[in-house]
Design a protein around this nucleic acid. Structure first.
Lengths: 182, 182
DNA sequence: ATAAGCATGTAAAGCGTTACATGATTTG
DNA sequence: CAAATCATGTAACGCTTTACATGCTTAT
């Protein structure tokens, strides 16, 4: 449950309510969790129990009380320790590659249609990611280095999608060549 | 639970026991499940219940009975239908990017060490993948097209790791430049 | 002797998503 | 009038991993 550290990180920028955290998760691709109620609210309760955040309840008229969470010094220390910890390996789950493994069951028209629809999906994803990168994101970027890292992080996903598109192009071209010659 | 289709695909090559399927999952990166007992054996029972595979029990002396599963015509039809179905989007889960998001907490030596250890991990992964691609893999490749697809599938993961390495290189270089100029 | 390989299965726990539950206010 | 926004929380379900359970044989 690394999501706790992601939440701790967001709280290191400024205090958040659970509801606002949900929105951050919803439109971030790097923060790959769905950001559903169950995850966010239980994680916040857990962080509070561990003393890594404090909770400030703002009672509102005609709306449920808003609970604002603020990171503690202990929380900042835990965050830094986690950031320093050994990186995990990235996980690439691509069900399409598994489909392709048995795509020899298809005729050439079906196969090319399959590749084309995957290409479309990836292209949409790339455009969304590029658009998001153009809009200023939620991060503060007080230092030049922080701004640079933020830029490189969104570049990472973009380059993965571009790599994927160029791979698809190669595959489709190769298949057409096989068709003609074979 | 797409793992059922992956198993069905493997069985379309030739019959397998659960134990042998486990080994296939264990050394395949594209088949991204761990391939633990629970998944494999319950999936096989489920596939059998649905009539997509038949089971042949080979009693052995002084070893547990080996159960060999063979795909049925119904199973082949289900597999083809799945291969034709709309591709899912790939999922990239990279916890390291989340670490980097708050890496401005680190001094430049700590940050470069973090990047260096991630680079090492990715490089090892790439080498393993390249080595695996050189060894003949478990797939049969009866047609030229099947061989080509198989080649491109292992190329996909390799290109992702290469893309990742070139990204890390760019990040580290950019940070060194910031150090000198800033 | 100890570990690894052969071979199957179940149980428990963790993590994640969807759906349920409530209820006022604002926007289309 | 319906849908979205604000705001929190719980319940149920499903997938995945780890651990438990058994037990013989072969290699180090």
């Amino acid at each position: 449950m690394t999501i706790q550290y992601a939440i701790l990180g967001l709280l290191s920028w400024h205090p958040f309510s659970g509801y606002d955290l949900k929105k951050v998760f919803a439109d971030s691709a790097a923060l790959y969790w769905s950001g559903n109620n169950n995850q966010i609210y239980t994680a916040l309760i857990q962080l509070h129990k561990e003393g890594l955040v404090t909770r400030d309840v703002q009672v509102q008229e005609s709306l449920p009380a808003k609970k604002i969470y603020t990171i503690t010094e202990k929380g900042r220390a835990a965050l830094k320790q986690w950031v320093l910890s050994m990186p995990e390996l990235p996980e690439f789950h691509n069900t399409f590659l598994i489909q392709l493994t048995w795509a020899d069951l298809l005729d050439s028209r079906e196969l090319d249609a399959l590749l084309a629809s995957y290409e479309d999906e990836v292209r949409v994803q790339l455009l969304m990611q590029q658009e998001k990168a153009n809009r200023q994101d939620t991060s503060p970027a007080r230092t030049r280095r922080e701004a640079y890292l933020s830029e490189m992080i969104s570049q990472n996903l973009i380059s993965i999608y571009q790599n994927e598109l160029s791979w698809i192009g190669k595959v489709r071209q190769g298949l057409q060549h096989l068709e003609k010659s074979g």
